[in-house]
Amino acid sequence: MSSSHAIGHDHEHAGGHITPLPVYFAVYGALLVLTVVTVAVSYMGLPPLQSITVAMLVAMVKATLVGAWFMHLKYDAKFNVFTFLAALWFMASFFVFTFYDLASRGMVNEVTGQHVLHKDMDEQKK
């Protein structure tokens, strides 16, 4: 429960760090702008890879804003931040290793890598 460098009238309080109202509204404004941006980009017709990259980058910025200010992580005990990041780390390990399998099927053996669609299954049954 400590705060050292907040904008505005920052002071120690029994209720922990009190974020000034303008900060909340600024964060909210940024979130709205980013939402508009991400929707606008989706109409630009980017190729899928670029489209998802932009969308995810914007989402991450938005998530950081929510986490840091709305969820007070910026002023919170460092261990809570660590806990949150640890969760993301373990999520990432789940994604990366599972995806590595999906993506590398067929790198050694072509036939093993084919994900047969159910329609092919039907054909093969005939």
Partner: peptide, 19 residues
């Protein structure tokens, strides 16, 4: 509640926007 919001921040572009 913020976490519910946080999840939606990712669901929205993944499901609706990514063409």
């Amino acid at each position: 509640w913020h976490l519910v919001d946080l999840i939606w921040i990712f669901l929205f572009p993944l499901l609706y926007l990514v063409r």
